[in-house]
Design a protein around this nucleic acid. Structure first.
Lengths: 231, 231
DNA sequence: GAAATAGTGTCTCTAAGACATTATTTC
DNA sequence: GAAATAATGTCTTAGAGACACTATTTC
């Protein structure tokens, strides 16, 4: 039995929520696509989060802006070779970063609808990570992490709407998010649209802000009642 | 490196939220108290949740009414012997059940205030599991799982108030919880108080119901932004 | 000026929170 | 009847959702 991690990386690019896959070059599941993953190296990694960071760097040449444990899968059927224990992480990646050539970003909703065969249980892992992302977007400022630099409120609202796959009322959205503990106006403006929009960055030490009430899209996603059966 | 689980068991007894500890009979931390835990047996356990159930049964002679993965701890400093990977579970236990003599139930808030030394990082694990319990109590029907059989609405409200350590407004509480997808009146009454109270049991297939809005006590507990730093 | 996008004002509605009131029991 | 507890009614308030309106730019 060996301990491994898998990282489900998300980014927003051109209004799409994308997930990172790579083509496996070894058995099992050779030439199929799967998540970025790897084993714990007890000599190098002081903590399992370090393992995730290191694997992300080594396999995909990526650094995360947000990294969170989602679930631990451990059973005798997910790996055809042996009992397997695997810790799943959700990462948010800055879209400016380039990835290695054997990696590709694809639309996560298209992927799930396509029912393509991924290596191991990786499709299920992606669904779990996506559910966590959707749930947390409903009640927190998490999507701020998708932006590396400055951004406008309409861009942030687009991020929420892309993740939740539903439109949100503009006034209420702005009332919620435009709080000094979440956003700080930089004084600059984005002039790429017609009327210029104020630019913001995340507040100093932007820890996740949790709201008291859900932002509900229209699409009804079941709550992530799971951490292997919660959120 | 070996894979282990620890289970943080909670129950409500006489208006107290209690956690289960047992006295270790082996090194390290011999004669100190700690959580119930044990290793994965690849031959017996088909899934890590099975491991938790089996360990709970073997070590404490207990069956759970609710069992949820909270976090996975894996680092090089939590066990003095070696790199350790450990999956933490939260369990809710029926107070009718008897435990083995080397186990004891103690008030979890007293334990945390007492700053007693527990084995390994078990005090931290208890705090994580407690935080999850508190958070989920704020936005779901989870405390229903503390009741094995029938219960009254005032008893259920007491459960919430004990976990959240604050009083809740009665009318709003009843409006929230008294929904047919959460509670079903049995037609019977509890006559132990003055005016009899209607008895309920959890609705058929009582899956956790998530509320759209938090129930906020007065005591401000930080949100469980962690699963090693979320929910 | 027309079109497009940013940003605000205001009304309604839902549900929480506060509090009073009624209902049913024991003594 | 008094005390205790269960259960309900009602008022206020906060914030979401809906929607119209204003503001600032490009063309």
């Amino acid at each position: 039995m060996i301990g491994t991690i898998e990282v489900c990386c998300f980014r927003l690019q051109q209004g799409q929520l994308q997930v990172l896959l790579h083509k496996r070059k070894i058995e099992p599941f050779i030439n199929q696509f799967g998540l970025i993953g790897g084993g714990i190296l007890a000599e190098q990694d002081t903590d399992i989060k370090d393992t995730a960071s290191r694997v992300l760097q080594q396999r995909a040449n990526l650094a995360w802006r947000y990294l969170e444990q989602v679930n631990t899968l451990a059973n005798n059927h997910r790996d055809p070779r042996d009992w397997s224990i695997c810790c799943l992480f959700l990462a948010i990646i800055d879209p400016e970063q380039k990835v290695n050539p054997h990696c590709k970003w694809i639309n996560v909703f298209d992927l799930i609808n396509s029912k393509v065969n991924l290596a191991f249980d990786h499709l299920s892992l992606i669904q779990q990570a996506l559910l966590r992302l959707i749930n947390k977007t409903q009640y927190s400022s998490l999507p701020v992490y998708f932006f590396a630099d400055q951004f406008t409120l309409p861009e942030l609202q687009d991020a929420y709407e892309t993740i939740l796959r539903s439109k949100l009322p503009k006034a209420a959205f702005r009332r919620r998010l435009n709080r000094p503990d979440i956003l700080v106006a930089t004084g600059e403006q984005d002039r790429s649209q017609n009327r210029p929009a104020a630019l913001y960055r995340s507040a100093e030490q932007h820890l996740l802000v949790h709201f008291d009430q859900l932002m509900k899209g229209h699409s009804n996603t079941a709550p992530d009642t799971t951490h292997s059966d919660e959120p």
